[in-house]
Amino acid sequence: MTNQTDTQTNAAIEVDDLVTHYGTTRILNHVDMQVNTGEIMVIMGGSGSGKSTLLRYMLGLHQATSGSIKLLGHDITKISAQEMDDLRKNMGVSFQGGALFNSMTVGENVCLPLHEHTNLDENTIQIMGRMKLSVVNLGGFDDLMPAQLSGGMIKRAALARAIVMDPKLLFFDEPSAGLDPVAAAELDDLILRIRKALNTTIVVVTHDLDSTFRIADRITVLDKGKILMIGTVEEVRNSDNQRIQSLLNREARHVEINADEYLKELTGQKE
């Protein structure tokens, strides 16, 4: 595909035939996926299905074995480090544990991207940081250290840091993990509000079904490194695929046992 068609299809993120390995183990297996501009795409799937892995590759944290990943029309498997740096100014990420820098205050954390990427004067930076903190209802907490925050506050502070540059792309890994239902719902509202205000394209990895149905425009279902289905909330809900239904109904996974492999596993043999 050429750049021309990208703009026509309006895709902010385009993953094309992506294959990835950790060591010699293949994790993602010919993954194709598109996220449209302004869309909230939720990636779900069982534990170990490769959700976080797909996210990490979209963030350019690892080198793909083959395939391409286009963000805002730039193929990140091919661009230079300098171009990647520039692209990153349009990307915000909120990691599962928040990943706030422990040696800095909440305010310094939020302002770090501004310090690194802009030439704004200190006052402006401070004001912008406080504004983002108040967006996530953490106004006045800028002088605290991350260790003094609760789990939900850490996630919101991480979100403030992720949106401080007003990114076009926003990524979340398990936003509701470790939060009580109320805090999780608050975070979902925040995600929706941010999309509404800035028309941000958002990718969320989660296995929280309630949260998925609240925020998703479309859902990508991963299974063992392959895409099982991509569709709207309704389409996924109404799917008659066995695996998707068991995922939605939280059924325990049915493990297929191959007698030979099981024996090898037990005796510790590897091929």
Binding site: G60, D85, F95, L100, E116
Partner: peptide
């Protein structure tokens, strides 16, 4: 090492640092 497991290193990289 602590920064690595808390994903702070990844956070630096995605910020472009």
């Amino acid at each position: 090492g602590t920064m690595q497991i808390a994903q702070e290193i990844d956070a630096l990289r995605v910020i472009g640092i």
